[in-house]
Simulated scan of single mutants.
Amino acid sequence: MLLTPSERATYKTEIAHRLSPLSWSEVDVILDEFGANTQDMWSGDVFSYVVTMIKGLGDLPLRQLAAHLNIETGENSVLDPPVFWIEGQLWVFLSHLSKHKIFASELQAALATYGICSFVAHEDIEPDAEWQEEIEKALRTCDALVALLNEGFNQSTWTDQEVGYALGRGVPVFSVRLDIAPYGLFGKKQAFNGKGKDAASIANELYDAYRKHPKTRDKLADIVVDRFCNSGSFAEAKANSKQVEELEVWKSEYKSRLRDAVNNNGQVKHSWGVPEKIEAVIKKHDPDAVKEDFDDKIPF
């Protein structure tokens, strides 16, 4: 039976979202097996790449690829991003026990300073919203999950299911050891010692892991560049430039975007030493780049 336009749209959107957390090589292996196109060079993100590569895929291979990724059509399968996710940020699900929601909220606020939007069920769901449905939406669309391992975490059916869902999707699953150690299927995953640390320290460690992880570093690199280009103060420009210096990923369009920010964003242009730092970053990643002159570097 032929797919309806709605079913094709659902499959393509869901497939792109399911493959987005994977590495480029993993994506190409899967696309190639199902007869989709692949390319050696791509300047955009994984989502746009997958959408473009499966654009001409026939109904049968599209069905087969969707089945491989456990995607179903129908009302419940249509991607409906939760309203609490912030566009242009990394989306992280914080799995925690309800009695520890205060610390989860503190970590949520600390992560936000790095361009990471995190979901805390007991804070982000509207009172009249279907609680389980919103949690499912968050799990289906998050870029990563963090398990806050307080005493009793392994006895909660909800937290175990949240971790299992994320593991099944193949998104990065990190744990923060607070009272107990990682266990079960995610016992071998990356863990952080959170005992005696405040939310800011843990957030910094998580950010550092996400900027290096092959499944999150591309998106986070875009976020870092966006935040730098939109710096709203001298202090922001300085802080954001440090993150630009630490980029694990370099894309060709970054050179023009960073230089445009230096030339046209006054908070960047007049932040002491920042233009020189950015030019050094460009030179590091693109040794053949011609150095540009920057005028009026003295802040006022």
Rank of each mutant, 00 (worst) to 15 (best):
residue 15 I to M: 11
residue 130 E to D: 15
residue 242 K to N: 11
residue 214 P to Y: 07
residue 66 A to M: 08
residue 252 S to Y: 03
residue 115 G to F: 00
residue 174 F to C: 11
residue 111 L to S: 08
residue 188 K to C: 01
residue 31 L to A: 11
residue 170 G to P: 02
residue 170 G to Y: 02
residue 256 S to N: 14
residue 158 W to M: 06
residue 170 G to H: 04
residue 299 P to V: 12
residue 7 E to V: 10
residue 191 A to T: 04
residue 109 A to S: 12
residue 252 S to V: 13
residue 201 S to C: 00
residue 207 Y to W: 11
residue 21 P to A: 09
residue 119 F to L: 07
residue 123 E to V: 11
residue 155 Q to I: 01
residue 121 A to I: 01
residue 269 K to A: 14
residue 295 D to A: 12
residue 70 N to C: 06
residue 100 H to Q: 12
residue 10 T to W: 00
residue 210 Y to I: 02
residue 35 G to D: 08
residue 161 Q to S: 09
residue 97 L to W: 01
residue 267 Q to F: 14
residue 209 A to T: 07
residue 194 G to F: 01
residue 120 V to Y: 01
residue 225 V to P: 02
residue 131 W to N: 11
residue 30 I to F: 04
residue 72 E to K: 14
residue 290 V to A: 13
residue 225 V to M: 05
residue 121 A to C: 06
residue 240 N to M: 02
residue 272 W to I: 13
residue 59 D to P: 07
residue 165 Y to G: 04
residue 85 W to K: 12
residue 275 P to V: 09
residue 207 Y to R: 12
residue 226 D to Y: 01
residue 134 E to C: 09
residue 196 G to A: 07
residue 56 G to S: 11
residue 273 G to C: 06
residue 59 D to N: 15
residue 280 A to R: 11
residue 300 F to Y: 08
residue 61 P to V: 14
residue 66 A to S: 15
residue 79 L to R: 14
residue 248 E to M: 08
residue 265 N to G: 09
residue 158 W to L: 09
residue 286 D to M: 08
residue 137 K to G: 08
residue 61 P to N: 14
residue 184 G to C: 05
residue 35 G to L: 07
residue 100 H to Y: 06
residue 252 S to C: 05
residue 19 L to I: 06
residue 158 W to E: 05
residue 126 E to H: 10
residue 128 D to N: 13
residue 218 D to A: 10
residue 222 D to S: 13
residue 220 L to Q: 15
residue 285 H to F: 15
residue 16 A to Q: 03
residue 107 L to N: 03
residue 116 I to H: 04
residue 191 A to M: 00
residue 33 E to Q: 15
residue 103 F to T: 08
residue 97 L to K: 09
residue 184 G to V: 05
residue 156 S to P: 01
residue 94 L to D: 04
residue 46 V to W: 00
residue 138 A to L: 05
residue 115 G to I: 03
residue 132 Q to V: 12
residue 72 E to D: 10
residue 291 K to T: 15
residue 152 G to Y: 02
residue 19 L to Q: 06
residue 277 K to S: 13
residue 94 L to T: 08
residue 7 E to N: 07
residue 141 T to K: 01
residue 231 S to A: 15
residue 65 L to Q: 09
residue 246 E to V: 02
residue 266 G to H: 02
residue 248 E to S: 15
residue 24 W to D: 15
residue 276 E to I: 07
residue 173 V to W: 01
residue 37 N to Q: 14
residue 117 C to Q: 10
residue 131 W to D: 10
residue 52 T to L: 03
residue 102 I to K: 09
residue 11 Y to H: 14
residue 17 H to F: 06
residue 119 F to T: 06
residue 141 T to G: 01
residue 297 K to A: 13
residue 178 L to D: 02
residue 206 L to C: 08
residue 50 V to I: 07
residue 59 D to E: 11
residue 11 Y to T: 13
residue 289 A to W: 00
residue 163 V to W: 00
residue 84 F to G: 04
residue 251 K to L: 06
residue 23 S to W: 00
residue 283 K to F: 03
residue 134 E to S: 12
residue 54 I to V: 15
residue 53 M to D: 03
residue 208 D to I: 01
residue 48 S to G: 08
residue 3 L to D: 05
residue 176 V to H: 01
residue 285 H to W: 15
residue 287 P to W: 05
residue 34 F to G: 11
residue 185 L to S: 13
